[in-house]
């Protein structure tokens, strides 16, 4: 038999996703699968006492991952659907249900803006929204409820750190780390990326919850050690699960969603 040459002889074809099978550039199958991951992780409580009066679900650590794997909008769908399913299956971690769903979606959107390049407009809009949330939160705490500005500052440190990571060039650096071929770098990027994305997600959630619950200063004092601890847990979850997922997705050679940034 004649030996065939090593190089492909046929004409190279352009491979495209056909739109009907995608949500914002991500295959529907990916969105459904990752929604299921979020829903399952909703079962696992990961804290003892929190702002909205219940433990937070482990799924909060992967909302950001949805944004990096699927892009901001498909990621928002996956996180939101997963959180919505989780509310019914695991009400013990749901907190205030509608806030949880909105928060989950926003976490993926924030993450979707943490990329090496591009999405400047999205980043700018989200920065303004985050700043507005912080201002409104502080105004509500200090002016309306008379909480000491110093206490609010200490209680809000982890969110301010998240905001700083998001608005400075660190957002690009983190995006670059998540796209790195080296998994250790990816893990570090995911840790700080999850901190930024879920920190700002919690900013919105806290604002909504605060307008409903009006925590007094005593609660803020409790927040000072708890919130950074929780944020560390979220970021560690995001880094551990995210590194495994991204390593697996890269290795399995399945198609990368159009808006993915890993």
């Amino acid at each position: 038999m004649k030996e065939a040459p090593e190089q492909p002889l046929g004409e190279e074809r352009t491979v495209v996703f056909l739109e009907s099978a995608t949500i914002a550039g991500a295959p529907v199958a990916y969105v459904i699968m990752l929604s299921a991951v979020v829903a399952v992780l909703s079962f696992i409580p990961f804290s003892i006492a929190l702002s909205t009066g219940s433990s937070f679900p482990m799924s909060q650590g992967v909302y950001g991952l949805m944004g990096w794997v699927l892009g901001p909008w498909a990621g928002a769908w996956a996180s939101g659907i997963g959180a919505l399913v989780g509310i019914f299956l695991a009400p013990h971690t749901a907190g205030i249900p509608w806030i949880s769903v909105v928060g989950a979606a926003s976490g993926a959107v924030y993450a979707g803006a943490i990329v090496r390049r591009g999405r400047r407009a999205l980043g700018a809009v989200l920065s303004v929204i985050a700043l507005l949330e912080i201002v409104l939160f502080w105004q509500h705490a200090i002016v309306r409820n008379g909480v000491s500005p110093r206490i609010v500052f200490y209680a809000d440190l982890s969110r301010l750190f998240a905001f700083t990571l998001f608005v400075l060039p660190t957002r690009r650096w983190i995006g670059g780390m998540i796209a790195s071929p080296h998994l250790r770098t990816v893990a570090v990027g995911l840790f700080f990326g999850t901190w930024a994305a879920t920190g700002l997600m919690m900013s919105g959630e806290s604002l909504m919850a605060y307008y409903l619950l009006n925590w007094p200063q005593e609660v803020f004092v409790m927040f000072i050690p708890i919130i950074p601890l929780e944020q560390c847990f979220r970021s560690a979850i995001g880094a551990v699960i995210g590194t495994g997922v991204i390593a697996g997705l890269r290795a399995m050679s399945i198609v990368k969603p159009a808006k993915a940034s890993y």
Binding site: P8, E11, R13, V15, V255
Partner: peptide
């Protein structure tokens, strides 16, 4: 292959 996996596809 190739619509789900992506990659480079040649021929028909």
């Amino acid at each position: 292959v190739p619509q789900f996996y992506g990659g480079r596809f040649f021929g028909r």
